[in-house]
Design a protein around this nucleic acid. Structure first.
Lengths: 209, 209
DNA sequence: CGTTGATATTGTACCCGGTAAATATTTTCG
DNA sequence: CGAAAATATTTACCGGGTACAATATCAACG
């Protein structure tokens, strides 16, 4: 209902996001005010808030929503007999082949993450998104009202991805090698996921619900 | 140097903290402004900021600093041959016996954590403190510049404690039983710690640095 | 005791992110 | 077109947090 309108909305949203990103990179996240962004995008400050609830969302827009979406889709579509965690591991492999930013580290992704790491409020928002993703993953693993173990497993998965990403970026920055960065990333993914898999399996044997 | 002065400082700090806590519980964290707190404590807003860098620190003052301190102490004092993670597990057991708030759940602790959970900014600050604790723990485990695996292990330990605490509080709220809450807490602690222990052990066998 | 230097404390003025509510503008659709 | 609904803007405000200068308080020393 309302095609032209929706186009315009998407356009406005994109313009705001683009303008903001440009300003942020030119200076820094904290140095650019919302008033500036609004002015540069030819809208009012309120309009910016219409599209992005928080300033941080101008940069982190749906980073983790998307991650969760991938996770969900993969788990639901997994072949019979495949454990959810094994499937997630497989998903990461597929993302690597596609060189998707979630599982591939190069100059561009490293720049992005370094920028995020430089801003306390972006980091904070990222932690929040991570938590939300973990909660969503727990629900995917164990239905609504997941128990403690499911929540712990989901948290560990998300933590593993985050830590692996941090290490990959760090290695890239220090060594300049995308190859080594990706190797580190997947080494940690494997270790973290295996630990979680082991934990869940032990529990399944130890107590039948 | 300056005894009287230091006493007065501690006094002032305590008064501010007490007054703030009271006001927060009477209304809510967000509903109480710093101006109010300052007025109620007979100091200026600036003085409040002198003692507490952020509003959140009025409630979470050193929650996790203290946790890290415990961890550090335990790891350093552990008997030879004991793995750090096993020692941390033992530490949690000791804290339980002392009914220390970190490892014991009753009406009082549940009230506190429910209050924290009700405030987004308190939750955010808590996540930040958790991250700092994890980083500190990683350094304790693997020296300065810990590698990815150490950081992952430390993150998982902290995550386990956090998740276990959340579940314990949740159980207490639903069932009203401190006994069950504590049981849930330690069940999760055991599972999480075991998974991390397994991960570290596997790595030590798999690759010699 | 009184001066000096350090340290706490305060006042003032401001910035910025975010919210609320009324108003204006645009778009859709009958 | 004209009314209704959705969006956008204006304006005014709140509250946490910072910067900076001014001032009070205290310890120490001659």
């Amino acid at each position: 209902m309302g095609e032209r309108r929706e186009n315009k909305k998407r356009e406005t949203r994109q313009r705001i996001s683009d303008v903001a990103t440009e300003l942020f990179f030119a200076r820094s996240f904290e140095a650019v005010t919302l008033d500036e962004i609004a002015a540069a995008a030819n809208v009012s400050k309120m309009t910016v808030f219409n599209y992005f609830a928080r300033k941080e969302d101008l940069m982190l827009d749906r980073q983790d929503d998307l991650k969760l979406l991938f996770f969900r889709e993969a788990i639901r579509a997994r072949p019979q007999g495949q454990s959810p965690i094994a499937e997630l591991r497989a998903l990461m492999g597929r993302l690597r082949e596609q060189k998707h930013p979630f599982a591939h580290f190069d100059r561009h992704t490293a720049d992005f993450w370094r920028f995020v790491a430089a801003s306390p409020s972006l980091e904070a928002r990222l932690r929040e998104l991570n938590d939300e993703a973990a909660e969503g993953l727990a629900i995917e693993l164990a239905g609504p009202n997941p128990d403690g173990l499911a929540r712990l497993a989901a948290g560990m998965i998300v933590l593993t991805v985050r830590t692996a990403r941090q290490e990959a970026v760090s290695v890239f920055e220090r060594r300049g090698s995308a190859k080594k960065a990706n190797a580190v990333f997947f080494a940690l993914i494997d270790q973290g996921f295996a630990a979680v898999q082991g934990m869940a399996a032990t529990d399944a044997r130890g107590q039948s619900s």
